[in-house]
Amino acid sequence: MILGCSQNGCSEDAVRLFTRMYKENVRPDSFTLVSVIQALADISDPLQARCIHGYSIKLHLDHDGYVLTALIYMYAKCSCATIARTLFSSARERHVFTWNPMIHGYSSHGFGKVVVELFEEMKSIGIAPNETTFLSVLSACSHAGLVDEGWKYFTSVKEDYGLEPGKLDEE
């Protein structure tokens, strides 16, 4: 139910259900936490973000890869880039799905140069970008006036990664 609410634009309902679950002493699993964290990301309330983060620590689920990625995404959406970056740096393993929320968070808040640095770091350690990564990077370059970098990345989409640029917005 929490996931359904979260995915269908009923974030506040998802949080209410989670609160009810908490009050009834039902212990959530990582799947449930990810679902409510996504809802809180949509609400973008830093206080609630800290509360759910603290609760994930209490449950010893804060190092679960899915929960950690959701927390990074949530903090990035709540304009808490420093906390998102700290969590990102603490990740034991980083996959493209761990990098994407960090890159997207910086992109959506206008930090184009930081996005380019992160993207280059990601590539340098052998993590291949996907369509989501490229959308964030190209958006960041566009908004930050990084025309040369943006063009370089746009041409590399197909040449270096075999992705179709016209299909990036359909994924």
Rank of each mutant, 00 (worst) to 15 (best):
A70F: 02
S56R: 03
T82F: 00
D62S: 06
E93L: 14
I57Y: 00
T86S: 12
D42M: 12
L59G: 07
S44W: 03
Q48P: 04
L68K: 08
L47R: 11
R92G: 14
L40P: 08
A39M: 11
R50E: 13
R94P: 01
R92A: 14
I43E: 11
Y75R: 07
H53N: 12
L61N: 04
A81G: 10
K77V: 03
Y73M: 10
R94S: 02
D45E: 12
I83M: 07
D62E: 10
P46Q: 07
D62L: 04
R85N: 14
F88A: 03
L40D: 08
G54Y: 01
I57G: 06
D62Q: 07
A41K: 00
L47W: 05
M74L: 11
L47T: 15
S44T: 10
L71I: 06
R50T: 12
Y55G: 10
Y73H: 15
L68F: 00
H60W: 09
H53R: 03
D45H: 10
Y73K: 13
H53E: 03
S44Y: 09
D64L: 02
F88L: 02
D42V: 15
P46C: 13
D64K: 08
E93V: 15
C51T: 13
T86L: 14
A84P: 01
Y55A: 09
H63W: 00
D64M: 09
R94F: 03
S90N: 09
T86F: 07
H60G: 14
I72S: 10
I83K: 10
S90Y: 02
T86Y: 07
L40C: 15
Y73W: 07
I57C: 07
I83P: 04
A49R: 07
A91E: 02
A49T: 14
I43K: 09
L59Q: 02
D45F: 04
F88V: 06
D42R: 14
Y66H: 05
D42Y: 13
V67G: 04
A41V: 03
Y66I: 01
D62V: 05
C78Y: 08
